[in-house]
Simulated scan of single mutants.
Amino acid sequence: MSSVQALILDWAGTVVDFGSFAPTSIFVEAFARAYDFPVSLDEARQPMGLGKREHIVALGRLPSVDSRWQARFGHSMSKEEVDHIYRTFMPLQIEAVTRFATPIEGVLPVLTMLRQQGMRVGSCSGYPHQVMEALVPAAAKLGYQPDHWVATDDLKAGGRPGPWMALANVIELGIDGVHRCIKVDDAVPGITEGLNAGMWTVGLAVSGNEFGATRDEYQAMSEAEIAARRAPAQKKLHQAGAHYVIDTLADILPVIADINQRLNKGERP
């Protein structure tokens, strides 16, 4: 029997949406539509993992964005401007997630195998509930249905990097110890979330936000290109405190085996 009882999984860049493009590309579009203001995809990726309104706030505070905003509007981004961008963002995001709901290659067979062994699959996201209500059924049609999901605005305590969404999964799934859970995420706030919840944490260096490539772009890269992009992603996730960093969720079986051995020796995250 596995000592690990549950995986608590992020969504975009972890289980679906290789490269985490549904959220990042829509931030670029929302800024453009709301204020005809350009932000780059690289800038949009920097606060990834936060709740989406918090993401807009953090994006506006980036020195590069803030300086351009002040030059254009004469002040830093205001609450009212954040609210307008968020209102613009929401319908675009709801539509986008249904187009980016395809499970990442190799993930579903691994999850099926683990569930057959009794593993529970929880999930949480930086997406708000309204977006998740579109993403969850779209992913289900393509074969992915977690045992439970929590959106970033479902809990009064808030979202990442706090532990609350991860812990809500522990309660709902009936897991008897947080040390028997593995939090898997492609972004730093999700790793911090898992650490704050007392869980083992696994970062994803290739399928998600830090690597930032589509599946087709990734497959077309040389080994040298892959290594050059993987290395900084691995470093950032390790520096965030991830206990393990792998390429994609499909690579998690050896990690679970190692954590089982550590748990059986009495180790804790």
Score class of each variant (00 low, 15 high):
7 L>M: 13
12 A>G: 04
13 G>H: 07
13 G>L: 06
15 V>D: 09
15 V>F: 11
27 F>P: 00
28 V>W: 01
34 A>W: 07
38 P>G: 01
40 S>D: 03
43 E>H: 12
44 A>H: 00
45 R>A: 05
47 P>K: 07
58 A>V: 09
61 R>L: 15
63 P>D: 08
66 D>Y: 02
67 S>A: 10
69 W>C: 08
79 K>V: 13
82 V>M: 02
83 D>K: 13
87 R>T: 11
88 T>P: 10
90 M>V: 12
92 L>D: 08
93 Q>P: 02
93 Q>G: 01
98 T>K: 14
104 I>R: 12
104 I>D: 08
105 E>W: 13
107 V>D: 03
110 V>N: 14
111 L>C: 06
111 L>G: 05
114 L>H: 04
115 R>Q: 15
119 M>I: 03
119 M>L: 09
123 S>D: 01
125 S>A: 09
126 G>P: 01
128 P>V: 10
133 E>T: 12
133 E>K: 14
133 E>A: 14
134 A>L: 03
137 P>M: 14
144 Y>K: 06
148 H>Q: 09
150 V>F: 07
153 D>V: 12
156 K>G: 14
161 P>N: 05
165 M>G: 13
165 M>S: 14
171 I>F: 08
175 I>G: 10
175 I>D: 12
177 G>P: 10
178 V>D: 04
181 C>R: 03
184 V>C: 04
185 D>W: 05
186 D>T: 00
188 V>S: 07
190 G>Q: 03
194 G>D: 06
199 M>L: 02
200 W>L: 04
200 W>I: 07
203 G>V: 05
210 E>M: 13
212 G>C: 01
215 R>T: 04
217 E>V: 04
224 A>R: 15
235 K>F: 10
239 Q>H: 08
239 Q>G: 07
240 A>E: 06
241 G>C: 06
242 A>W: 05
248 T>K: 11
253 L>Q: 15
256 I>D: 02
260 N>G: 15
261 Q>P: 00
